[in-house]
Design a protein around this nucleic acid. Structure first.
Lengths: 136, 136
DNA sequence: CCGGGAATTAGACAAAGTCCAGATTGGCGA
DNA sequence: TCGCCAATCTGGACTTTGTCTAATTCCCGG
């Protein structure tokens, strides 16, 4: 995959997002790493050289990417949300002591026996989180 | 089940927790309702008549109950943690628009095909969250 | 070059949760 | 019963994550 800045513009456009400088930088930070980042981490990466992007823009942009289905939100730690550039079906392995977050491919995993949804409700997503820690 | 205040003392003792006034009130709030409460909600319930328990104590006590295995933590909403007096195996159904959180009995649900854990790691728990919203 | 809507910004603000030093409590031995 | 001591509780300052707003900047079509 090509995650160069140049290609980010196309990616954004294909998701109906106006590609601006800041948005390209933020997309690049997430996609070139292919890892789970918090808003804080994204801000730090984007502003390494000199301050370029404000906090408000980082939060707004991440929310926009989320709405447009470009990235996913992973809620495993009460203190911060992680953003995941991998939107294909997958689950997560969370090391509670180190805070490390890894993907689990969903194609091997089967979940069966879930009860029917309450009437008038639709599933927005199913999150499966395996919490692990060092054996002592 | 008897979730009277009198019985809370025994419950706490059986989990190796010194039963104090405040701890009994907090346990009573959670267990008599059998529902998922946030720290804020616990504090509001405990202090309905007149202020009796400080914020610090509520947070400390919930953390203590958690360590001692008396309650569980449910992380579904980035803005607040819920505490669950039901520690038997079960999953959760989360209505993203209303914030309502319901239990899913785990006995009917099967999860298969999870990959082996990394060496030296043990599972602390598996959280399965079904996110739903109103169909439009 | 100009006007206007979209995007960005700094900084004030809000809410959840943590921390600390001092005050209170309650159980126990004398 | 009394006084002591460790455990517990407290108010309030503080931190962190995230939101909001009003003012500015950017960019594009004409």
């Amino acid at each position: 995959m090509d995650y160069s800045r140049d290609n980010m513009a196309g990616l954004l456009r294909s998701h109906d997002i106006n590609p601006t400088h800041q948005r390209i930088e933020i997309a690049h930070a997430l996609f070139s790493r292919q890892s789970h980042l918090s808003a804080d981490q994204v801000m730090a990466i984007v502003n390494t050289r000199h301050s370029e992007t404000s906090k408000a823009t980082v939060y707004n942009t991440l929310k926009l990417f989320l709405e447009k289905g470009l990235i996913r939100e992973v809620i495993v730690d009460p203190s911060k949300v992680f953003y995941d550039p991998n939107t294909s079906a997958h689950h997560h392995l969370y090391a509670v002591d180190t805070g490390e977050l890894t993907d689990i491919d969903a194609s091997q995993v089967q979940i069966s026996g879930l009860p029917a949804l309450p009437a008038g409700m639709v599933t927005e997503g199913i999150d499966l989180i395996v919490r692990v820690r060092r054996a002592n």
